[in-house]
Design a protein around this nucleic acid. Structure first.
Length: 897
DNA sequence: CACTCCCGCCAATTA
DNA sequence: TAATTGGCGGGAGTG
């Protein structure tokens, strides 16, 4: 009976929790919310039972099988029956049947109410996204199952997926430890790395691409050796397998979940169709692949997808291909993560004050004494060392010796090979299946190859979904560039996630509006000299930006955009220790900063200066607030951001970084030279400043701005919220815009963007240079954001857009920009607008056009600039190469970190 | 009919 | 051996 009661009670509890959740997790994400409301729903179920129980029996008479089942269930819950059963219903009997049934039906929770996704939400609602490191939350399976009113089996489904992401870890029998999302970004990063190794480009390119395969294969080979590094991820998997029989565990939902996530992280488009995922995940695959197996895999993927959806990491979408529409999932979580989580630390929006600790803690869940054993098996992925140990263990172990050569590594290798095969298989299949498809895919690859590719559309893998379509393009673009960016960029947002995720993603993808826009905007530099930008001006703008993150697109694009960022930064800073955080923030800040800095130019006017820091709050980002925190972490890599924050709030933090700040410093840093700039971008991730390059170098008249640091950090951060960042904008002096090219940033808003971001920046920059070269005229760059593809959401954006378009120039940021653009009040103000480059207007597409040009330029030195066209080609190649290289570097770098 | 995916049997693992 | 985990696939909802 007690139990019974509990269950009853439970319903309520969950409800309570939910609200909380919202705030925490989703808060912002509108998407989910819809669901949330539902929560309540469930509770009812239990009730039904009672009454029903009897009824059911009756019913059973009516409908045989079903009823039987029902009975069983009921039987199990005798108590319930007893409780209410008494009710009049029983009386009904014969007649009752009908009525009963009806009631029954009414009460009977619909299938949706019982969905794993909903269940998972309820589950998640019970725990804080960012629990204090100090407190450990243990989860009792039985308890949770009873509270949520489901069988334990279902809880396992949830927990297994969560465990794969290290949100929980098993401590002991029936006991799990809740870790929250503190380590999520780190975990994702690991998965991404692992994914690269395993799936490598396969996914990147799009599953289908042959090209990819090739690369893929190569990569893998290479990777294999490296595998050691990989292990991290693998470990996780391996652990399980290693324990003893791999057989069972290998198939485990846990591993599947990780692999599934990897596919997203590796995918440029961030969209993975179920069938492809299933094919890839079926290890042996190939040939045999019976249909049944495939079906089973798909079933499991749905299970996993439901949980991931509840986590706000993916969302369901449809991809249309020639054949038709296919179910697919799009990654809406953080794309990149800062490598160092440490610094990044995501704090929980709400509470987390503690910075560092969490992370550490997070990493190793296990601490717990008791359950360790298991732990070892599963959890560990943390450090490589452990992993290795594990491996060793494994190897030594009895299991099939041959299986793995080197323990986990081996596994990975194997997997890789399998994957490769699979990939190939998949491809083939796909090709077969649809000739068309093949075409599509091909196209994509090609585009990728081309480096910039002109057509976004082509890029897109799947034409189908409207939604996605847009995105894809952008992505495609990114990839090229991408290399630069490394991993970081986006990730940030993710971690935070709870609410954010959506936000960032949303902004990017859909709206594009985001945040950045405003800030990012453009820079104009009249003169040749270089500038360094720092957070100075910022305040206004900056402040605004921050908010963005939180909100997402919702808030009005304009104002908000800027502020949000700021906010975040602040919050982060404030909350956490000043030092570390700073970096993260930078990106956003930079952007903002840049803008501000530019302001001087007049062009850039911050839109609402007044907004000032706090604006954020005001703006309405209610959500944002919550969000911010998270974002913050990640985001700001660069000092600038912090500065901004500081400015607003207090400069305290800034101390270190702030010092950099721009204004003053400018002179210092800037390495003059175009090349430098580019380099800087690449290399200096952290520094907040921006550099302005004079024309002298190669460019005749034009100047560039870069954020010095941004490159990595900035970007990454940006990703979260705003994306962009990094590249700031450049303005060219002279004249006329007319001549110059402009750069548009591609706006990619696409969701994918996240990944690409990094690349973007590079690309963006490139573009600039080109333009400049070409004409000597001044160029403007803005980050624009294009955006928009689908985004739609924000109408507000549109209005602005027009203006923005012009700006497209700022390629780099596009992404970020994109976000920005919407909002970007600034833009409006700016002269830039004037420029308006052409096309940008069209949101999504524009980017494409833009893209091509840009990339090259940036990277190349001035001299090279000479031919834009030529450049492009070269760049394209180079870029690519570079990108790949970069990637590697990045990865490597990160890993080392 | 196709897509989702709930449900719970029952085997593998663990205690 | 009992209990816990969790793979798996039938087949029920949903659109």
């Amino acid at each position: 009976e007690n139990i019974f009661d509990r269950s009853r009670m439970a319903p309520k509890t969950p409800i309570k929790n939910e609200p909380i959740d919202l705030s925490k997790q989703k808060g912002c994400t509108p998407e989910r919310n819809p669901i949330t409301p539902v929560k309540v729903i469930d509770r009812p179920q239990p009730d039904p039972w009672t009454p029903t129980a009897n009824l059911k029996i009756l019913v059973s008479a009516a409908s045989p099988d079903m009823r039987d089942r029902e009975k069983k269930k009921e039987l199990f819950r005798p108590i319930e029956n007893s409780e209410q059963s008494d009710t009049p219903d029983s009386l009904q009997y014969d007649i009752v049947d009908d009525s009963t049934v009806d009631e029954f039906e009414k009460q009977r929770p619909s299938r949706k109410q019982k969905s794993l996704g909903l269940l998972c939400q309820k589950f998640l609602a019970r725990y804080p996204n960012y629990p204090l490191s100090t407190e450990k939350t243990t989860i009792s399976l039985d308890e949770v199952a009873s509270i949520l009113g489901v069988e334990r089996r279902r809880i396992y489904d949830i927990v297994n997926v969560l465990e794969s992401l290290h949100l929980v870890s098993r401590v002991a029998k029936n006991q799990y430890c809740w870790h929250g999302r503190h380590n999520l970004s780190q975990t994702l990063k690991m998965l991404q790395e692992a994914g690269q190794l395993q799936y490598g480009e396969l996914m990147t390119s799009q599953h289908k691409e042959q090209d990819l395969e090739y690369k893929f294969g190569e990569r893998k080979k290479e990777a294999i050796p490296d595998s050691q590094d990989r292990p991290l991820l693998d470990f996780t998997e391996p652990d399980c397998s290693s324990a003893s029989a791999n057989s069972r565990k290998d198939k485990s939902l846990r591993i599947m979940s990780q692999k599934f996530v990897m596919l997203f992280l590796v995918s440029k488009t961030k969209i993975v169709t179920l069938d492809i995922a299933a094919k890839i995940l079926i290890e042996e695959t190939q040939d045999t692949v019976d249909h049944s197996k495939f079906k089973t895999k798909v079933r499991r993927l749905y299970d996993i997808a439901n949980v991931l959806t509840s986590l706000g990491l993916i969302k369901k979408v449809h991809v249309t291909e020639e054949r038709g529409r296919k179910p697919a999932f799009k990654w809406i979580g953080p794309v990149e993560f800062p490598e160092k989580t440490d610094e990044l630390r995501e704090h929980s929006p709400t509470s987390d004050p503690l910075p560092g600790t969490q992370r550490g803690a997070c990493v190793r869940y296990q601490t717990s004494g008791p359950g360790k054993q298991r732990f070892t098996r599963h959890a560990s992925f943390n450090s490589a060392q452990p992993c290795e140990a594990t491996r060793r263990k494994v190897s030594s172990e009895p299991n099939s010796p041959h299986q793995e050569k080197q323990a986990s590594i081996v596994n990975s290798d194997e997997n890789c090979s399998k994957m490769i095969n699979l990939a190939a298989v998949c491809r083939q299949k796909i090709d077969k299946d649809t000739g068309n498809k093949a075409c599509d895919t091909k196209t994509i690859p090609n585009s990728a190859k081309n480096s910039n590719m002109t057509l976004p559309s082509s890029l897109l893998p799947v034409p189908g979904d409207s939604d996605f379509c847009v995105n894809p393009l952008p992505q495609a673009v990114f990839p090229v560039v991408q290399a630069d960016v490394p991993s970081f960029s986006l990730p940030v947002g993710i971690s935070s996630q709870p609410s954010h995720p959506s936000t960032p993603a949303a902004s990017k993808t859909e709206n594009g509006k985001p945040t950045l826009v405003p800030n990012q905007p453009f820079l104009c530099f009249p003169s040749s000299s270089l500038f360094m930008l720092c957070g100075g001006l910022q305040e206004n703008n900056l402040s605004e930006p921050l908010p963005t993150a939180g909100d997402l697109g919702n808030r009005s694009a304009e104002a908000q955009a800027v502020p949000p960022t700021v906010c975040q930064k602040r919050s982060s800073h404030k909350c956490s220790s000043p030092s570390a955080p700073v970096d993260d923030e930078e990106p956003a800040a930079k952007k903002q900063m840049l803008e501000h800095s530019f302001l001087p130019l007049s062009l850039v006017v911050p839109k609402k200066p007044s907004e000032s820091p706090k604006a954020e709050s005001s703006p309405g980002n209610g959500c944002s607030a919550a969000v911010h925190p998270e974002t913050d972490h990640l985001d700001f890599a660069s000092p600038a951001a912090p500065e901004v924050a500081n400015k607003e709030s207090a400069k305290p933090l800034g101390s270190q970084e702030q010092g950099k700040q721009p204004q003053n410093k400018d002179p210092d840093e800037p390495p003059p030279g175009n090349e430098h700039v580019s380099k800087e971008n690449a290399n200096q991730p952290f520094q907040p400043q921006y550099l302005y390059v004079q024309p002298t170098a190669g460019l005749s008249s034009f100047n560039f701005l870069f954020s010095a640091n941004q490159a990595p950090g900035a970007i990454s951060l940006a990703a979260n919220q705003l994306p962009s960042l990094s590249v700031p904008c450049v303005m060219v002096p002279s004249a006329a815009l007319a001549s110059f090219p402009l750069v548009c940033s591609p706006s990619f808003t696409s969701p994918l963007s996240p990944v690409p971001d990094g690349s973007f920046s590079a690309a963006a920059s490139t573009n600039f240079s080109m333009s400049s070269l070409a004409s000597s005229t001044p160029v403007f760059i803005s980050t624009t954001a294009v955006v928009t593809p689908k985004v739609s959401p924000a109408p507000s954006v549109d209005p602005q857009q027009p203006a923005h378009p012009a700006l497209h120039l700022s390629p780099v940021l596009t992404r970020s920009c994109s976000a920005v653009k919407l909002d970007s009040p600034v833009c409006m103000g700016h002269p830039v607008t004037l420029l308006k480059l052409q096309q940008p207007s069209s949101a999504p597409l524009t980017p494409k056009s833009i893209r091509p040009a840009h990339h090259d330029a940036f990277f190349k030195t001035p001299g090279s600039l000479g031919d834009p066209v030529a450049w492009k080609k070269n760049e394209g190649n180079q870029t690519r190469n570079a990108s790949s290289v970069q990637r590697r570097l990045e990865i490597s770098s990160t890993s080392p970190d």
